[in-house]
């Protein structure tokens, strides 16, 4: 198959350092504290909180990707980074596409759902204890 490397040669590939883990830990602690703080202390109006939480989550994820998973630090060609980017693209297409499609469908059927919920609630009371 492929000529193989010794343990020492492999370990040279490893990108982690005490510094990266310490930074990652600190980074995550700070961002987590801010996120929880935003919800518990409630300083912002509601619609901004959602966006802030999303941004904080994405930033913390990026931090963990860099500090813990060493993304972007692999040797060229940087396939891990490319594949991750492509995965994220497809993921966003599927997630945003689904949210769009489902909200669109729900909008066009919601009036019926209200009636159905009332009917099934009645049915639920009759059948279940």
């Amino acid at each position: 198959m492929s000529t193989d490397l010794t343990l020492k040669e492999i370990q040279k590939e490893w990108h982690g350092t005490y510094r990266s883990y310490a930074l990652g830990l600190l980074f995550s602690l700070v961002l987590t504290a801010i996120s929880f703080g935003l919800v518990i202390l409630n300083p912002l109006p509601h619609k901004y909180v959602h966006i802030a939480l999303l941004v904080l989550a994405v930033v913390q994820a990026a931090g963990q990707l860099v500090f813990f998973l060493h993304l972007g630090q692999e040797a060229h060609p940087r396939w891990e980074t490319l594949i991750f980017s492509f995965t994220t693209l497809i993921l966003l297409i599927i997630v945003i596409g689904t949210l769009w499609v489902m909200s669109d469908l729900n909008e066009r059927t919601m009036e019926n759902m209200e009636n159905m919920k009332n009917m099934t609630n009645m049915k639920k009371d009759m059948v279940h204890d």
């Binding site: 935003l38 509601h46 959602h50 999303l54 904080l56 989550a57 913390q60 963990q64 813990f68 998973l69």
Partner: peptide
């Protein structure tokens, strides 16, 4: 270790979208 870090990554999104946004 890749697997283990990955799970922590996913948890970021769980505590944000499920728990924190749920409480807003």
């Amino acid at each position: 270790s890749m697997f283990w870090h990955f799970l922590d990554l996913i948890w970021i999104f769980i505590f944000t979208f499920v728990y924190l946004m749920g409480m807003v």
